[in-house]
């Protein structure tokens, strides 16, 4: 927990002296993001471990995990492909891109390939509308994606 409490000091609040460190709890999301990245999901066991570490109830961890779309309780593929399905991307043919991904991967949107290599999802706007249709490939923003680019994207990750 070295990174926790990077700053600590005594300050006055409403006339009383209180110790402020950047409260441990505020690093919960970061901790969960790290687990998600390493494991591809947040298992019951990891929720319990995290809860112990942060001295909170596992249900609280669960409630946080289920709120955020990038944190999941189901195992995701090693690579997550998120196709933006917001209006600007839809206008430029994002549906067609989704279909090509589905065909090439042999799965439906929202599913993970049997070998655990790919998860395909639709997502809200990813801030690439000037390069629509756009795809978030793991952490990388890619666009505009043409039908012929799908193979290239997948080959790079295989």
């Amino acid at each position: 927990m070295g990174k926790f409490c990077s700053m600590k000091k005594v300050v006055k609040k409403d006339g009383k002296e209180v110790v402020v460190c950047d409260d441990i709890r505020s690093y919960l999301l970061e901790e969960l993001q790290e687990i998600q990245e390493k494991e591809g999901f947040i298992s019951d066991e990891n929720m319990q471990k995290t809860a112990d570490k942060f001295k909170i109830h596992p249900v609280e961890v669960y409630s946080v995990v289920t709120f955020y779309s990038f944190l999941t309780i189901e195992k995701k593929g090693r690579n997550v492909i998120r196709v933006s399905s917001c209006m600007p991307c839809e206008m430029k043919g994002s549906e067609g891109i989704v279909e090509v991904f589905e065909k090439k991967l042999g799965i439906k949107c929202g599913e993970t390939t049997d070998d655990g290599n790919f998860t395909l999802e639709k997502t809200s706007c990813i801030g690439m509308c000037d390069k629509a249709p756009a795809v978030l490939v793991n952490d990388e923003l890619v666009g505009p994606v043409e039908i012929g680019d799908v193979d290239k994207i997948l080959d790079r990750l295989k």
């Binding site: 917001c86 600007p88 809200s124 706007c125 801030g127 690439m128 509308c129 000037d130 923003l141």
Partner: peptide
């Protein structure tokens, strides 16, 4: 957190 659909100027 720029999330409004159609917004990408912060990017």
């Amino acid at each position: 957190d720029e999330g409004e659909p159609g917004t990408f100027k912060d990017r």
